[in-house]
Design a protein around this nucleic acid. Structure first.
Lengths: 140, 140
DNA sequence: CTACGAGTTAGAGCCGACTCTAGATCAACC
DNA sequence: GGTTGATCTAGAGTCGGCTCTAACTCGTAG
C-alpha cells in the first residue's frame, strides 16, 4: 500500500478513469496516449498524473461521440508539439460544432419525451378510457 | 408517380426518415414497428403516415442513445394498448433521466473543448514560444 | 515455499446496429 | 417483349469498441 504519489498502476488508473484495464491497454495500442507509458518492476505500466488527466479528457471526448481515430489524430498533433495549433484548433472547433448539434438534438428529443410523459400522465389522471392516445408532439 | 397520399413505398419512407431501406426492413424484423406493415402489389411494403410518425420518434430515441431492445419494449407496450400507462411512464421517465444526464455531460465536455480552444487561440495570438501549454481545465 | 492477486502478451471473441449480397419478382416504359 | 429500376427474402459480412482467454511473470503474505 505504498503511495509515492507519482506512479499509478493500471488498476488504479482504471478505477480513476472508469475505463477497464483491458480498455487502457487497448487505448495504448491504439496510440491514444500522448507518451508511451513508463514501465516499472517486471515490465508493469506506471502511469503519471498527466496520463490520468489526458485519459479523463479522452473519456469525455469519447462520451461526446468522438471516435477513437479522431482522438488518436488529436493526440498525434499534441504529441508533435508546437506548430500544429491551427490544425488542433480546426479539430477542436469541429468537435465543438458536433457537440453543440448533439445538445440541440438531445434537447429536442427531451422535449418530445417530456411531452409524451405529460400526455400519459394526463391520460392516467383522467382515467384512461379510449385506445392509446397517440398525441402528436408539438414540434419535431 | 401516383400519390394517393396514403401509402408510401419503402424508398419514400427511407427518404423521409433518413433510415436506409435495409434499416427499415431490419427494424421491422426486430419488432420496432407498431403494426406489421401492409403489403401492396407483389408483396411490397406500404407504409402509412402513422408508421412514418412512429419511425421519426424511433429515430429520435435512437439518436438519444436508446438501444433497439428498449425501443422494442416501448413499442410492445404501446401495441398492447391501455393498461400499461404506468409501465410506459416508467420507461419514458428513465429515458428522460438518461437524456438529461447526457445533456449535462455534453455541456461539460463542450465547456472543456471551448476552454481548450480559447487557450490555443490565445497561444497563437501571442506567438507561441514555449512547448504546448497544456492548460488545465477550470473544472471537470 | 507456495499460494495469491495483480500484472504481462498476443490474439480471439462478442455485441449492437446496421449494411450488403444474391437471386428472384414485379410494374412500367419503349 | 425486353430493359430498367425498385422491391422482395434469407442470410452473410462489417465496423467500432471493447472484452475475454490463455499462458506466463512478479512481489508479497502466510
Amino acid at each position: 500500500m505504498s503511495e509515492p504519489n507519482q506512479g499509478l498502476s493500471i488498476g488504479q488508473v482504471a478505477e480513476l478513469t472508469g475505463l477497464s484495464v483491458h480498455a487502457l491497454r487497448f487505448y495504448e495500442r491504439e496510440g491514444i496516449l500522448l507518451t508511451s507509458v513508463r514501465r516499472g518492476a517486471g515490465g508493469r505500466r506506471v502511469y503519471g498524473a498527466g496520463d490520468v488527466e489526458w485519459l479523463h479528457l479522452c473519456v469525455s471526448l469519447r462520451a461526446s461521440g468522438m471516435p477513437l481515430p479522431a482522438i488518436r489524430q488529436y493526440a498525434d498533433l499534441v504529441r508533435r508539439g508546437a506548430g500544429n495549433e491551427e490544425h488542433l484548433l480546426t479539430l477542436l472547433r469541429q468537435q465543438q460544432d458536433r457537440v453543440t448539434a448533439q445538445i440541440a438534438q438531445l434537447t429536442g428529443t427531451l422535449g418530445l419525451i417530456t411531452h409524451k410523459i405529460s400526455s400519459y400522465t394526463r391520460e392516467l389522471a383522467q382515467g384512461a378510457t379510449g385506445p392509446i392516445t397517440c398525441t402528436p408532439p408539438p414540434r419535431t
